[in-house]
Design a protein around this nucleic acid. Sequence first.
DNA 1: AAGTTGTTTAGAACAGTTCTAAAAACTGCA
DNA 2: TGCAGTTTTTAGAACTGTTCTAAACAACTT
Lengths: 139, 139
Amino acid sequence: MGQDMSGTSLDFSARLRAAGLRPTRQRVALARVLFEAGHRHVTAESLHAEVKATRIPVSLATVYNTLNQFRDAGLLREVVVAPGRSYFDTNTGHHHHFYVEPDGELHDFPSDKVTVAGLPPPPKGTRLNRVDVIVRVKR
Amino acid sequence: MGQDMSGTSLDFSARLRAAGLRPTRQRVALARVLFEAGHRHVTAESLHAEVKATRIPVSLATVYNTLNQFRDAGLLREVVVAPGRSYFDTNTGHHHHFYVEPDGELHDFPSDKVTVAGLPPPPKGTRLNRVDVIVRVKR
DNA sequence: AAGTTGTTTAGAACAGTTCTAAAAACTGCA
DNA sequence: TGCAGTTTTTAGAACTGTTCTAAACAACTT
């Protein structure tokens, strides 16, 4: 008799495996926190704090490793909006961000209604990768 | 008889004074490096390296202080494009950026031809501050 | 020139992130 | 199921970029 594998662990294991990552205890725990509810924005610290509540031991170093791996695997997107802190977004589709200063709150908005027109061509020897629109708002 | 005040020192002194900042040796030296040629992008480290060549002693702490003060005074604009490093742009007018990954090179482009349409209204209780468009390109 | 205030400085401190090397855990195979 | 081979996790050190501290110094005022 194996352990209790009910719930969504198996789904996450499969997803991780599909991404070329071994489904370890800590990766599954992190994936669960990240992906089981709707879209989220986390920092390494905030995710670490959250996963501690699940009683599965995960070190901060592992949180960093995992966030980078998930990002590299396309499971997360890194968002750079403030100096000295990286946000990770579980929404990897096309969208943009509101950034509320000085709180550091981040909100997605879909990009389907947004048009960015009149961009100059990329500098010589480079090709376009992504266009980020950050709408900075104040309280 | 005062020291040799020829050149542009006086202009920078006046500009600093106008911004509410005492025109100290190091602030004038930094202002000169920053503003005497065309528009520039610097980091604290790169500016520190440059100002050392002028033989006017400026500590790294002062470079940081000064960049922050210049930014607060509206003489510079801070650009956040990469985690763990702040860029400062002497161009404070409306414009956007190309960011060349992974070099970390930054290029301005004017915003007059660029239109960003269809943005959703700012979240409740906030008002728009600025819209940043970052075009990320790869080699 | 003296006093007052603001600025600079070296170095310590700090935040966020990555590295290291040893222990633990996953996986495939007998 | 047990074992070998490989990957992952971990605590803690290390590292990077930035800010802080408090003492020395420079700029302005009189």
